[in-house]
């Protein structure tokens, strides 16, 4: 092997080593960098969520929001009070809705009715809907469960 070849071989090894080590370091540090930055949702949305805006919830209306995959229902009464319940009908787990014409909560599956305290008042539901805590900060409606 002549000297020039040797030098180029050494150069190639150095280049390969530098590049691959550099790439390894990047591959190791990039995930860490991304990991440390707070994610879009700062907290597991299991017990507390931003359920909606007060301005988008006129009196005598309701809105479905979600705790992760589980639905909850926000209700604004005629009087303007905001309440929140589990959105899962206690009969067969369908998602309930607010019926402005009935002025209470209703489940389409088997015509189950709940009053504005979440109490089952008519039809097959065996139990009331679970009640959640509502906090209003400015225009934001926060709902906390298990509180």
């Amino acid at each position: 092997m002549d000297t020039g070849n040797k030098i180029s071989r050494k150069g190639f090894i150095n280049w390969l080593l530098g590049t691959s080590l550099g790439a390894t370091v990047v591959a190791a540090l990039y995930p860490v960098f991304r990991y440390v930055l707070p994610p879009e949702v700062a907290e597991a949305p299991t017990n507390r969520v931003l359920a909606g805006k007060l301005s988008e919830l006129p009196p005598n209306s309701g809105k479905i929001f979600r705790f992760g995959a589980k639905p909850g229902i926000l209700v604004r009464t005629q009087g303007g009070e905001v309440r929140a319940f589990s959105g899962i009908c206690t009969h067969l787990n369908c998602t309930v809705q607010y019926r402005a014409d009935f002025q209470h909560i209703w489940c389409a599956c088997h015509n189950g009715h709940y009053d504005l305290q979440g109490k089952n008042i008519q039809g097959p539901p065996p139990r009331p809907l679970e009640t959640y805590k509502v906090d209003i900060v400015g225009d934001d409606i926060y709902v906390t469960r298990g509180a």
Binding site: P31, V32, R34, Y35, L37, P39, E40, V41, E43, A44
Partner: peptide, 12 residues
């Protein structure tokens, strides 16, 4: 949460 919502949390 780490595995699903934090970027690269699953990797860590």
């Amino acid at each position: 949460f780490i595995m699903t919502r934090v970027p690269f949390g699953w990797l860590i």
